[in-house]
Design a protein around this nucleic acid. Structure first.
Length: 425
RNA sequence: GGAGAGGUGGCUGAGCGGCUGAAAGCGCCCGCCUGCUAAGCGGGUAUAGGGUUUAUAGCUCUAUCGAGGGUUCGAAUCCCUCCCUCUCCGCCA
């Protein structure tokens, strides 16, 4: 959330940020206007309350002294009604303002490239050798099906399209990937492993920024008004909602493997083949709460932590920095990691590493006390996938397939999987 | 699902209609004291918003004792609803 004070002081900057993210800058006008209305009411009602407080104290003194307070009591009874009516109007006005404030996206960091679509994203780096597929090479879908790693039809039978069922070696490979990534992040990068709830409350999804705008993208359990998490970012970030953290404890680093649920509303018909876009998938997520003075250094190190996964697996990838228009609602800066899938012929996004600055911690009232000023301040939150498995698996298979139809697994994975090669049936 | 207990500042924990933004302790900050450390002594220390202001300094007003309603001139304190935590019972992987 962008503080009201900032919108008042730098309306042009916020208008620009809205435009950058493809939203109407008119929201700023609406907010400023509502802010004026709130402040006018506030002045009025607070004056009346001040009067009420002083006279009420006077009544207390009169009663204790045994003198007659009837006149004051009658006057305050009349005033109480006015206060109540004004308070109601004030509350409504403040609620309206709050609603608008929650719609304001985070402002892009000045270093982020200008642009509106993915075509404007900036190439940062690449790693590994992009391979040319042989004439007989299969794409991820056919490999998954022919090697009997995933039974798409069974998943569809149970739930519907986009809910893959991993079978046999596929299930074990999925487990191997998750274990490998968790072990790497906990043992080598110092993250604390967490196994979080998969349902989150309205308050939690509001903190991370899925609500209020992206409600349609989540699965909702209406009976209890809970949401299936679209990413473990939601539970991990909300782990400290409403708390005051110890400055010395920063950075706090958490990692979780979890199922993620996304309705992918509006993207029907896109990428339906194989594992490129599914409604339920597994992901290892990294979340850090960091001191605001070093959050951009922490973003680089988070990205390194995620990249390490791909390097250990020997898979060619590239890093792109998202342009302003491609940034998510809550992000100030974001790097995507994309694996190369030689047969599909595309770069597959497997991780987004973002700095949200104080956007989420403000919404979630997550704070820490600064030793330099003695004041409360908001830590910055960062998160990144490390990484999501469906496209990882897709790239792994396409890159590892051999002319005989088998798939050679990266050395890092072999002990987890228990074999070096997935043989054809 | 049933019964009971409870939710107060960074933490522990008093208060149970006005003198309480809130005792006391811990923690933290400043100072004093003592070869150093430990201990001791004195003082300070909530958050948000409005107004004033060059000011994120001061001053001042308002709000906040889980959330929301109500009673009252006045609510942390009384009443109602909800949420959460704990204990016991039931059910269950």
């Amino acid at each position: 959330m962008i503080p009201l004070k900032v919108i008042r002081q730098e309306p042009d900057r916020i208008r620009a940020a809205l435009a950058d993210k493809g939203e109407s800058p008119a929201l700023v006008e609406s907010i400023l206007e509502q802010d004026r209305a709130v402040r006018a009411l506030l002045g009025e009602v607070e004056g009346l309350k001040a009067q009420r407080n002083t006279v009420s104290q006077e009544i207390g003194r009169q009663k204790r002294a045994g003198s007659d307070a009837a006149e004051n009591i009658a006057a305050m009874a009349a005033l109480a009604d006015r206060v109540k009516a004004l308070d109601k109007r004030l509350q409504e006005q403040q609620a309206a303002l709050e609603l608008d404030l929650l719609q304001v996206p985070n402002a892009p960091h000045p270093s982020t490239p200008a642009g509106s679509t993915a075509a404007d994203n900036r190439a940062v780096s690449s790693w590994g050798e992009v391979t040319q597929p042989g004439p007989e090479a299969k794409d991820q879908h056919d490999l998954l099906v022919d090697l009997a790693l995933v039974d798409f039809a069974a998943g569809a039978r149970i739930t519907g399209q986009g809910f893959p069922l991993y079978t046999g070696r596929g299930a074990k490979l999925e487990r191997a990937l998750l274990n490998f990534m968790l072990d790497l992040q906990t043992a080598e990068h110092g993250y604390l492993e967490v196994l979080p709830p998969l349902l989150a409350s309205r308050a939690s999804t509001l903190t991370t920024g899925q609500l209020p705008k992206l409600e349609e993208d989540m699965y909702r359990v209406g009976q209890d008004d809970l949401f299936l998490i679209p990413t473990a970012e939601v539970p991990l970030t909300n782990l400290h909602r409403g708390q005051v953290l110890e400055e010395a404890a920063l950075p706090l680093k958490y990692v979780a493997a979890s199922a993620c649920f996304r309705r992918e509303a509006g993207s029907y018909g896109k990428d339906t083949r194989g594992l490129l876009r599914v409604h339920q998938f597994n992901k290892v997520e990294l979340v850090k709460f960091v001191h605001p003075d070093h959050s951009y250094d922490e973003l680089e190190s988070l990205r390194e932590d995620a990249e390490t996964v791909l390097r250990r697996l020997g898979l060619p990838y590239r890093v792109v920095e998202l342009c302003r228009g491609d940034l998510s609602f809550a992000a100030a800066k974001c790097y995507d990691l994309e694996l190369h899938a030689p047969v599909t012929g595309r770069w597959l996004e497997v991780s987004s590493c973002s700095n949200f600055e104080a956007f989420q911690t403000r919404r979630g009232h997550i704070r820490f006390r600064r030793s330099d000023t003695g004041k409360l301040d908001y830590p910055h939150t960062l998160n990144g996938s490390g990484v999501a498995t469906p496209r990882l698996l897709a790239a792994l298979l396409e890159n590892g397939q051999q002319p005989d139809g088998s798939v050679r697994l990266p050395a890092a994975l072999q002990s987890y999987f228990g074999a070096e090669v997935i043989e054809p049936l």
